[in-house]
Amino acid sequence: MRLTDFWRRMAEHFGSGYADSFARDHVMAELGGRTVYEALEAGWGAKEVWRAVCVAMDVPPERR
């Protein structure tokens, strides 16, 4: 998954304004105690991070 696809999905699920805030501030156990930005900077793939967000936030299957 490309980062552009990842950020589009984040915006579709959370709204464009909240997606960035969530990615900067929400620490997730599924990402090893990192935020989305920290996980991406640490080398996690966009697809891995999206899957973690889906699990943590109960994203409906049709949006995964």
Rank of each mutant, 00 (worst) to 15 (best):
V36N: 07
D5W: 10
E30C: 10
V53N: 14
A39F: 09
T35C: 13
T4R: 01
E38C: 11
E48D: 15
M10S: 02
M57V: 03
F14H: 02
M28D: 14
A46V: 00
V36Q: 04
V53P: 10
A19P: 07
H26L: 06
V59F: 00
R51K: 15
G43P: 02
K47T: 13
D58P: 01
R9W: 04
A29K: 12
G17F: 07
A19E: 06
A56P: 02
R24N: 11
C54N: 09
L40D: 00
Y37Q: 12
M28N: 09
V27I: 07
G45K: 05
L40P: 00
G32N: 05
S16N: 11
G45C: 10
P60I: 06
W50K: 02
S21Y: 12
M28G: 09
M10C: 03
Y18K: 04
R51P: 05
M10N: 02
A42G: 04
A42Q: 02
A19C: 03
D5A: 06
R64S: 06
D20G: 05
L31F: 00
S16E: 13
A23S: 14
V53I: 06
H13Q: 08
F14T: 03
G45Q: 04
V55E: 10
R34M: 08
V49L: 01
M1F: 01
K47F: 14
M57Y: 03
L40G: 01
S16M: 10
G33P: 11
T4H: 00
L31R: 13
C54M: 10
E12P: 03
M1P: 11
M28W: 07
W44T: 13
C54A: 11
G43M: 04
T4M: 00
R8C: 11
H26C: 07
L40S: 01
L3I: 01
L31N: 13
A39W: 07
W44N: 15
A39T: 12
T35Y: 08
M28C: 04
A52L: 06
V49I: 09
A39M: 12
E41F: 03
R64I: 12
R8K: 13
A29H: 15
V27A: 13
H26E: 06
E48F: 08
G17V: 04
A11K: 07
R64L: 11
G15N: 08
L3P: 00
A52V: 08
V55H: 12
E48G: 12
A19T: 01
V49Q: 07
R63Q: 15
D20V: 13
W7E: 01
V55T: 09
A19L: 01
R51D: 15
S16Y: 10
D5H: 08
G45A: 09
A52T: 09
G17A: 11
R9T: 06
K47S: 13
W50I: 05
E30A: 12
R34E: 04
M10E: 02
W50G: 01
R2C: 03
V55C: 07
D58W: 13
K47P: 10
D5V: 00
S21T: 13
M1H: 04
L40F: 00
T35W: 14
W7Q: 04
F6P: 00
T4V: 07
G33V: 06
P60V: 05
G17L: 06
E62M: 10
V59K: 10
D58F: 11
E12D: 12
E48P: 08
T4L: 05
A42N: 06
G45S: 13
R2F: 01
L31P: 09
